[in-house]
Amino acid sequence: MRFNRKGTTQIKFLPTIASTELLPTRTEITAGTEYTGQIAALDGWSLENQPIETPDMASTFVSKIGGDDSASDSSLTLYEDDTVDDIETDLAKGTSGYIVIFSKGDVAANKGMDVFPVTVVSNSKAYTADNEAAKVTVQFTITDRPVFNQTVPAGP
Rank of each mutant, 00 (worst) to 15 (best):
Met1His: 11
Met1Tyr: 06
Asn4Val: 12
Arg5Thr: 08
Gln10Ala: 08
Lys12Glu: 00
Phe13Ala: 01
Thr16Leu: 10
Thr16Glu: 14
Ile17Lys: 02
Glu21Lys: 13
Glu21Thr: 15
Glu21Gly: 05
Leu22Pro: 05
Pro24His: 08
Arg26Pro: 05
Thr33Trp: 04
Tyr35Leu: 15
Thr36Arg: 08
Gly37Trp: 05
Gln38Ser: 15
Ile39Arg: 03
Ala40Gly: 11
Ala41Ile: 00
Leu42Glu: 15
Asp43Val: 09
Asp43Ala: 10
Trp45Gly: 04
Ser46Cys: 03
Glu48His: 03
Glu48Asp: 13
Glu48Tyr: 02
Asn49Lys: 06
Gln50Ala: 14
Pro51Asn: 13
Glu53Tyr: 01
Thr54Lys: 00
Pro55Gln: 07
Ala58Tyr: 01
Ala58Trp: 00
Ser63Leu: 00
Gly66Thr: 07
Ala71Trp: 03
Ser72Asn: 10
Ser74Tyr: 03
Ser74Glu: 07
Ser74Arg: 01
Ser75Ile: 04
Leu76Cys: 04
Glu80Lys: 14
Glu80Met: 08
Asp82Gln: 04
Asp82Ala: 02
Asp85Gly: 04
Asp86His: 11
Ile87Leu: 10
Glu88Phe: 08
Glu88Ile: 09
Leu91Lys: 06
Ala92Leu: 07
Lys93Val: 15
Gly94Ala: 10
Ser96Glu: 15
Ser96Asp: 08
Gly97Asp: 12
Ile99Glu: 05
Gly105His: 08
Gly105Leu: 06
Asp106Phe: 02
Ala108Gln: 11
Ala109Leu: 14
Ala109Lys: 13
Lys111Pro: 03
Gly112Gln: 09
Asp114Thr: 10
Val115Phe: 04
Pro117Val: 10
Ser124Pro: 01
Lys125Asn: 11
Lys125Ala: 14
Ala126Ile: 15
Thr128Arg: 06
Thr128His: 06
Ala129Thr: 13
Asp130Thr: 11
Asn131Ser: 09
Glu132Ser: 13
Ala133Met: 10
Ala133Tyr: 09
Ala134Phe: 01
Lys135Glu: 15
Thr137Ile: 13
Thr137Ala: 04
Val138Leu: 03
Val138Ala: 02
Gln139Ala: 14
Phe140Gln: 02
Phe140Asp: 00
Thr143Gly: 12
Asp144Gln: 12
Asp144Arg: 10
Asp144His: 09
Phe148Lys: 10
Gln150Leu: 07
Thr151Asp: 06
Val152Ser: 04
Ala154Thr: 12
